[in-house]
Structure formats: C-alpha cells, structure tokens
Amino acid sequence: MSALTEIYVDNVVRHLPENTRADIAAEITATIDDTVEARLGEDPQPNPEHTAAVEREVLEELGDPAVLSREYSNSPQHFIGPKSYPLFLWTLRWILPIVGLIAVLANVVVTVATTPDVQLGELIGSTVGNTVSALLTAFAVIAIIIGLGDRRADGAALPRMPGQQKGAWTIDDLDRRDVRGRQIRAEAALGLVFILALATIPFIPTSLLYVGHINHGGTFINPDLGTGWLLGYWGFLALLAVVEIIRFVNASTRPTVAIIGGIIDVAMAVFLTIALLTQPVLHPEITSAPNADIQQIIAAAAIWIITIWDQVSTWRTYRAQQSR
C-alpha cells in the first residue's frame, strides 16, 4: 500500500466507529490495490510513474473520502428527518403558543406587581423582549429533543402523536376539520378583540405611555368632545362587532355580510373624518397648537388608508373563497 492510499484510507475511516475502522480500512485497501493491479494489466515491471497515475485515478474515482465515510457510517445527514418532521411541527404548533401565552402573562403580572408606576411602553417592551426569548428557547429545546430522538428512532417506529390512529393509515384517519371555518372564526375573534381595544381608546390615560406629563395623565381624546360624537363612535364599533359575531357564528364569509361590513367601515371612516375636520378630537394639550390642523388631517388620511386596505383585503378574501 502506498503512502497516498494510506492517507486516503485514513481519511475515510477516521470518523467511523472505532470497532469497524480496521476492517473497513483493510477492505478498502484491498479493493484499491485490486483495481490498480487490474488496470496495470499483465505488465510485470510497471513504470512507477504510471502506477502512481493509475492509483490517483482509482482514488479519484472513489471520490471524496468524507462522502465515502458517510456512506459507510450510514448515519442521517440531517437534524430532523422526514419521520420526525410531523411530530416536530405538531409540537411547535402546540407548545409555542402555550409558552408565548405563559410568558406574556408572567411578564405582565411581574411588571405590574413590582413596578409602582407602570407605563404601557415599558410593559410592552419588557413583555415582547422576554416573550421572544422564551419562544426562541422553547424552539431550540424542542428541536434538540426531537433531533436527538430522530437518531435514536433510526429504523424504529416513532411514538404516535395524540389523535393519531394505531396501525396503518386508513381513510378514517383523514383530518376532516374545517380549516377554512376555523380560520374565519379566528379572524372574527381577533376582529372583536381589536374593536374592543378601539372602544376603550377614549378612556385610555396618557400616563400609560411616556407622554403622561404632557396633559397630566388625562385622556388622549379631547374631554370637551360632545357625547354625541362618542356615542356615534361606539355605535359604529357595535355594528362592526355584530358583523364579526355573525362571521364567528356562521364561520363563513357570505357576500351579504361582507358588503354590510364594508358599508359600515366606509360610513365610520366618513364619520371620523367629519369629527376630525370639524373640531379638535385629540386632547389639546398633546397636540402642538401651530400644527394641530395638520395632525388632524394626517389622522383622517390614516383612517382612510386603513379603511381602503380593509376593503381590498375583504374583497380578496371573498374572491379567494369563491374560487375554491
């Protein structure tokens, strides 16, 4: 065996289990020697340079020793393989939301309990930061555990996931859940939460953000705004809430409901635009006097951008549902 073959064989076996190295090394060496000998033919006195060239040719045909070594080890070259991937996805789908919820609740409780003067910005900042850390840690732990399990389960059946049927897959195992309906319900629930948050805006004190000093913890909304405007605002929100409740109950986006929702959206945008352009809606002390009008116009423009975007989004959702 030449030095070149020895180095090559050493490169192949160095990452293999120790108890197999000698056997595999001897086998590869014998095979390389056999191949070189066969190519040199019957020449009793081969030219050393020709022999070296043939040897190089044979080794190059065998290819990268790292690749050959992987072929011999036959170990997976992935972290989470196709057998474990469904379990990985299922675990992420269930564990991450739970971890996220617990992290949010824990942060809110701890911040409120330990900070005398809680400010919304501070609360949001610390909660988002800590929740992201918790989610990343949970993701890493899940990936490592399932990745290690994937190696141990090589060739063996994986444990069944909850809801999975025993034995071979049959048509009874088909996931018949109404995914589209669930999505509509989730969107409607999120819409209701958003409407509720909008309804509380007139009561939110500026001290919840870092601008509390500007108007001594008053509201963001002008306290002198007429009650009729506020009742109108809440009235429109109540109508939008009814639309979302109908979507939640029916779990479908019927065209009538979508059109009514769109009309209410536009009517509310018109109502808010009139309110913003005819009087100071925001608290006078938190708007700078020289640019107050411009700020009101910007707020009205933002409302229309959101409204138009909402209409386009609703229309696209409806079209997508019709095309199925």
Partner: peptide, 26 residues
C-alpha cells in the same frame, strides 16, 4: 470480493460506482 463483484456487475451490464457498492455490501 469487492473488486470481483464490481467487475461481475459491470460485465453483466449493471455498471455500479465503487463508492456506492462497497458500503452497500456492509
């Protein structure tokens, strides 16, 4: 043995790469 099998397969019209065949035997 490794090389003889490689030759047998090639002569039978089933050419196989050595780096695939030897690990396969194991």
């Amino acid at each position: 043995y490794g090389y003889s099998l490689l030759t047998t397969l090639t002569e039978a019209g089933i050419p196989t790469e050595a780096n695939t065949l030897y690990p396969l035997l194991r």
